[in-house]
Design a protein around this nucleic acid. Structure first.
Lengths: 197, 197
DNA sequence: TAAAAGTCTTAAACTAGTTCATTTTTTTTC
DNA sequence: GAAAAAAAATGAACTAGTTTAAGACTTTTA
């Protein structure tokens, strides 16, 4: 069958861990919803229940919370070929504490909670897909959970630049500061210093 | 069949997410290895390849790395009914950066990498078990990955005390400092301050 | 294309957390 | 159960990162 570019992208992503028959591919695609968001628009806001988990086929989004003082803390930037959403709210059906906002025009494929549950019943192989996907995410979050605690801000910045060179140039310095966990002023100092070296 | 207390504990843990037949239970138990470690002994050291993932049936252990200055950074405390190990090294078969040391006499059930792979072939339901287990761990690590960045040391301490009251009294203040990401001196100050309030 | 809004830079005064040194208290070991 | 070792407390001097404020630069919008 003939798939759109976005559908081919998600099928390739899935085929990293499991093999699907042509019929299974079609079934899977039929369970997904296309979503588009313009720059600065929200995919989701705090207080809502996360209805979907998303695969990004184009663009860039930031996932963040606001603290009591209204200051944003960015927990991830998501670009093409990445998954995003609020897994906690998606699973528990409790209101989310997260905002997801597009930093560029973005296109996504979403799977609803009903279709996610259905997927495991219709194509049990997807248990394996998600087992491996979550395992890999878990490994990177376990590593990351100590960064804020054991590295200086400058080290965290250098790590980020090294690990996500494709992202650094697509986001503002201010958003990067909110991800690194420092003020925009101190981010500016770090960048000036690092460039001087 | 009659199971040991430790075996009953792990079967109950597994049955939170999947149902096993009597035969499957016996098969699963047969794939596990019993391990005991005395206080201050290592379950694993940096440089080794993580041969097992462990379920703790008794005791308490700390999982940590050493930084360039030789200072420890504890990434988790593991007690009864928890899973531990270095998932990254276990999966990639690359040398681990972690030490796992018993802070009390501890007893564990380990599954080797060969048996872990075999398990999915023999009882595919375990894909579901690990999918859900990793999903839940992922949710808590996603939440935690921002703590070091967005909370003060005092807030992190209060969070830990609230979330793991059973653990606080079993570990030293020094180890807690290495987990919170501060010096033992500052940990002491925080505790004095919090107790005064 | 001009005005408005947002982003980045610089600098001075401040605060959370570190470092180093010493003493007291608790735990371990023989 | 005494001696040794480790953990905890306290305090003074220090540093990484914050706050506030103001000006320069860049992007968005009408």
């Amino acid at each position: 069958m003939n798939y759109k570019a976005s559908q081919t992208l998600i099928l390739n992503n899935v085929s990293r861990f499991i093999d699907l028959t042509e019929l299974e591919k079609q079934k899977y695609i039929s369970l997904l919803t296309e979503v588009k968001v313009e720059k600065k628009d929200f995919l989701m806001q705090a207080g809502e229940i996360a209805k979907y988990e998303y695969f990004i086929t184009k663009g860039c989004l930031k996932v963040y919370t606001l603290d009591e003082d209204g200051a944003p803390h960015i927990s991830m930037f998501a670009i093409e070929d990445y998954w995003t959403g609020d897994l906690s709210s998606f699973m528990t059906k409790e209101p989310s504490r997260y905002y997801i906002k597009a930093t560029e025009h973005s296109e996504l494929l979403g799977i609803s909670r009903e279709n996610y549950d259905l997927l495991f019943r219709e194509i049990p192989k997807f248990e394996r897909f998600y087992r491996i996907l979550y395992q890999k995410s878990l490994i990177s979050y376990i590593r990351r959970s100590n960064y804020g605690i054991s590295l200086t801000a400058e080290e965290r910045y250098l790590e980020f630049k090294k690990k996500y060179p494709q992202i650094v140039n697509r986001i503002t310095q201010k958003d990067l500061a909110a991800y690194i966990g420092i003020t925009p002023e101190f981010m500016s100092k770090i960048i000036t210093k690092v460039n001087r070296m």
